[in-house]
């Protein structure tokens, strides 16, 4: 079909549309978006599908794997080590994210007071952020040593403790310790995002509240904080998904110990999958981990979407 001027006058003749689709921006769009999408999906959705499939088999390093239905999942519910690691993962995620948000917001408010030495304080603040999680864990491990560790020495010199704190060898203390390290490492990132969120708030609203007679706490509570909620959701979503799959800090600090007191789902999955090489059962644990991550991410993405849409 040739396009003569006469044919072209017919509104949107099929030939014109077809040609526009074949040679126009449309095909070019796929050309430039697909490399990124194909690579990303190859490394996310494809392995995910394989993980789902393997979770229904008893595949291991020595066994090519037979379909065993829900047997791995039946074992999951009865696996006390799994229940323990799931519980710790959830508590760890909740407490770390809560502390990161509260302390991060406080840090952001402090840093936005136009204090001097901004460059230096920003630089110092970013140091924990730029460190590898494993390196952060390693550094803290040096400080955590019970005899000869600097933390116990300082606390003793200040007269705050009499006997050394068993930072990493007591189950409950170790749980607190890994959270301390995580919060130390990530609080700066949260402060950064909060600073951006705070800077984007319209000044007039806060000034209007001031004119209306609200004091500084009332202004924060009734004006700033409600308007900052999208930022809060964003941070909780991203940090929540990051903390729930924590692996490196735990490995660097306690390797899940003492016993299995600080074992997270990721650490446990790694042990089953890569150390015991039980691919089937490891995959089932991984799917539980995925469920946690997707629940957190999905819930807060929804809250964020709703908050943004309502214009807050």
């Amino acid at each position: 079909m040739t396009i003569s001027p006469d044919v072209a006058t017919t509104p949107q003749s099929f030939g014109v549309r077809l040609r526009a689709m074949a040679s126009g921006p449309n095909s070019f769009a796929y050309l430039i978006i697909l490399p990124a999408i194909v690579l990303r999906l190859t490394y996310s959705i494809v392995p995910l599908v394989q993980t789902v499939w393997m979770s229904f088999t008893n595949r291991s390093i020595t066994n090519p794997g037979q379909f065993i239905g829900l047997a791995n999942y039946e074992f999951l519910i009865r696996d006390e080590r799994l229940i323990g690691s799931l519980a710790f993962t959830l508590i760890y995620t909740f407490v770390s994210v809560a502390l990161e948000v509260v302390l991060g917001l406080m840090l952001a408010l402090l840093l936005m007071q136009n204090l001097r030495g901004r460059w230096l304080s920003n630089f110092i603040m970013l140091l924990p952020w730029v460190m590898a999680p494993l390196l952060a864990a390693t550094v803290w491990k040096i400080m955590f040593y019970e005899d000869g560790g600097i933390l116990n020495a300082i606390l003793r010199d200040l007269g705050m403790i009499e006997s050394p704190i068993r930072w990493l060898s007591d189950a409950n203390t170790a749980r607190v310790s890994v959270i301390v390290v995580t919060v130390w490492k990530n609080v700066s990132w949260c402060a950064l995002i909060f600073m951006a969120g705070l800077a984007a708030l319209p000044r007039e609203l806060i000034e209007a509240a001031e004119v209306d007679g609200a004091n500084i706490l009332q202004r924060f509570w009734f004006v700033t904080l409600p308007m900052l909620m999208p930022t809060v959701y964003l941070i909780v979503m991203l940090r929540g998904m990051a903390e729930v799959q924590t692996f490196e800090q735990i490995n660097g600090l306690t390797r899940g110990g003492p016993g299995t007191a600080t074992e997270t789902l990721a650490v446990y999955a790694y042990a089953r999958f890569f150390q015991e090489l039980r691919y089937g059962y490891g995959s089932a644990i991984n799917l539980l981990l995925l469920l946690c991550s997707v629940t957190i991410g999905g819930f807060f993405a929804w809250r964020l979407y709703r908050a943004n849409r309502s214009g807050l």
Partner: peptide, 17 residues
Amino acid sequence: ALVATVAIPGMVTLGPV
């Protein structure tokens, strides 16, 4: 699809990879 893959933990994809 592109954005949602962020929710998949690295540990989950690492095994098959």
